[in-house]
Amino acid sequence: MKPRKIPMRKDIVTGDMFPKKELVRVVRDKEGHVSLDTTSKANGRGAYISLNRDVANTAKKQRIFDKAFEVKVPDAFYDELIAYVDHQQARKELFGDK
């Protein structure tokens, strides 16, 4: 049996390639609203960021999504992103890889 192909995506902050399941998608819709896409199925332009606290903090510091989506992203979004990544990283440490 042939092994399944693992979809890879590039982390927008570090530029490294990771399996899609190890990243979170951030999406900008047609109206210019930026939000987390936990299902990876929302319509709009997407960018991926790894589930790492340091990477999320770097994204906030460098305003990565402002540049990627060419819109002004509020600080509240970056705080939500950091909280989500922190939660997911804690889940991973607590329950292990699934």
Results as ranks from 00 to 15, higher is better:
21 K>G: 07
7 P>L: 04
35 S>K: 08
40 S>W: 06
67 K>Q: 09
97 D>Q: 10
57 N>V: 02
35 S>L: 03
80 E>N: 11
28 R>A: 06
38 T>W: 07
37 D>G: 07
44 G>D: 08
32 G>V: 03
8 M>R: 13
43 N>M: 06
71 V>I: 15
56 A>W: 01
98 K>G: 15
39 T>K: 14
11 D>E: 05
95 F>A: 05
91 R>W: 12
7 P>T: 09
13 V>W: 06
76 A>P: 03
72 K>A: 12
78 Y>C: 00
66 D>L: 04
71 V>N: 08
41 K>W: 09
74 P>N: 04
18 F>W: 08
41 K>R: 13
4 R>C: 09
4 R>E: 11
26 V>L: 02
79 D>I: 10
58 T>K: 12
93 E>S: 10
16 D>M: 15
31 E>G: 13
70 E>Y: 01
67 K>T: 09
2 K>W: 05
28 R>M: 12
68 A>Y: 05
70 E>V: 03
87 H>A: 11
17 M>W: 13
53 R>W: 00
79 D>T: 14
31 E>I: 09
4 R>Y: 10
36 L>P: 08
73 V>G: 05
86 D>K: 08
10 K>N: 03
63 R>Y: 14
90 A>R: 11
59 A>V: 04
56 A>R: 00
11 D>T: 11
76 A>Y: 07
10 K>W: 00
98 K>C: 13
33 H>M: 08
67 K>I: 07
61 K>A: 11
63 R>F: 15
89 Q>V: 07
42 A>K: 14
35 S>C: 01
94 L>M: 13
84 Y>Q: 01
33 H>P: 00
38 T>H: 12
5 K>T: 13
83 A>C: 05
30 K>S: 09
18 F>E: 00
52 N>S: 15
